[in-house]
Computed example of a mutant assay.
Amino acid sequence: MRLEPTPELEAFRGKVRAFVAEHAPGVKAHAGVRAPEPELMPAIRAWTARLYAAGLLGIDWPAEYGGRPDAHPLEPSVVAEEIARARTWAPVGAASPASAALVEFGSDAQRARFLPRIRSGDDVWCQLFSEPEAGSDLASLRTRARREGEGGDAVFVVDGQKVWTTNGQHADMGYLLARTDAEAPKHKGITAFALDMRSPGVEVRPLRELTGTTDFNEVFLDGVRIPAANVIGRVDDGWRVAMSSLARERSGVAARGVELFAALEDLVRLAEEVPAGGRPALDDAATRQEIGGLAARVQVNAALIALAQSRMLHGTEGPADALLGKIFFSELNHDLADFGLRLQGTDGLLTEGDPAVLAAGWWQDAHLYSRAFTIAGGANEVLRTQIAERGLGMPREPR
């Protein structure tokens, strides 16, 4: 494993950093993967279009759609890191996994129709995978799609419910999984679709969360008609499409490392500002010791990311790599936010909007949101079982 960057990647990083500094649409007010307020969406769509036009997104797409086949495979990670370092908005929605599915499995007509609209920012996508009874166990999904008609007039009629749909309230298109063969084994008989979110029968209901914001949504599908031409890949082969598209999305992992370093810097700054026994909290040996422990874990997280990138470059990825990284990051992220609250003492009980709250309530919001990372992408408890079974080869739990 090589940890030092190449000169070419560092030159690319400088270009990206300058571009972000000039064009980014402002600093995010909240931690985590959040949905913007509606009034921010025009600026974020324009920002997304600029990133694609500059060749900083869609790097691994086919050249005819703006990709650069000769680019270094870590360039997408560099872009994600620099966006995170600037604490600004990454493009919102699920365009990354959706475009990965379209590039690998979509038809020429689908790529020609959907990829340019992703590039232009005209279409924001959401991911319609999770369901009330199929979150960490996604293959248990119950949303049904039945075929009607043949040939060019064929459609799939979809009924079901999705939940935890980030940015669903802003989405123009949905990357949907639905069961098309109820008799097939659990991981078979699922089909991937491109769904126009404006279709009759689609209802998006925002969920108000613990943070007081609305990032996730429920999506109800009642007799929604999707043209058969919008099937991504083959009918009943959607599980392979979904798993491949999710596996190709690695750049966000690199951004998480940068976010933790930024949170650590904020934590040190907070410890310099808040009092403890008439002196700055940072003067207290116990405080410094706890921050030191968190700093060590932030460095370990960075090493895990570098190891995963190295294995990706050499084609030696293991089945537990991404799972271990996700668990380690989510629990460390929570512990950083938790200590940020504890440093404030009783002031940690203040909330965003209170004139006396420190850092505009960022720590309070980050602490409340931090639990989402332990669930999103698979609950940590479930992922630990998967690590045991897939990574360590231990006997499967009784079903």
Results as ranks from 00 to 15, higher is better:
E273Q: 14
E273N: 12
V274E: 05
V274I: 09
A276F: 15
A276E: 09
A276N: 13
A276Q: 14
G278D: 03
G278Q: 09
R279M: 04
P280Y: 03
P280M: 05
P280T: 02
A281S: 09
L282R: 04
L282V: 01
L282C: 10
L282Y: 04
L282K: 05
D283S: 13
D283P: 10
D283Y: 13
D284E: 08
A286Q: 08
A286E: 02
T287R: 02
R288I: 06
Q289P: 01
Q289R: 12
Q289G: 14
E290R: 12
E290Q: 11
E290H: 12
G292N: 12
G292F: 06
G293N: 08
L294P: 04
L294V: 02
L294E: 08
A295F: 00
A296W: 05
A296D: 00
R297E: 06
V298F: 08
V300C: 07
V300G: 00
V300S: 03
V300P: 03
N301D: 14
A302R: 05
L304A: 13
L304R: 10
I305Y: 05
I305T: 01
I305L: 03
A306P: 02
L307N: 15
A308R: 09
Q309E: 14
S310D: 15
R311F: 00
R311C: 02
R311M: 00
R311G: 01
M312Q: 12
M312R: 02
M312S: 12
L313N: 07
L313P: 05
G315S: 04
T316H: 13
T316R: 15
E317F: 13
E317A: 14
E317G: 12
G318S: 09
G318L: 04
P319R: 14
A320I: 10
A320H: 04
D321Y: 10
A322V: 13
A322T: 08
L323M: 04
G325M: 09
K326M: 09
K326A: 07
F329P: 03
F329Y: 13
F329R: 07
S330I: 01
S330F: 00
E331C: 10
E331H: 15
L332V: 03
N333L: 12
N333M: 09
N333F: 14
N333D: 15
N333A: 13
H334F: 14
H334I: 06
H334L: 10
H334M: 06
D335V: 05
D335W: 07
L336R: 05
L336I: 01
A337T: 02
A337E: 02
A337I: 04
G340P: 05
L341M: 07
L343E: 06
L343D: 09
Q344N: 03
Q344C: 02
G345F: 12
T346A: 15
D347Q: 14
D347W: 15
G348V: 11
G348N: 12
G348H: 01
G348Y: 05
L349G: 03
L349Q: 06
T351G: 11
T351K: 10
E352Q: 13
G353P: 07
G353F: 05
D354F: 01
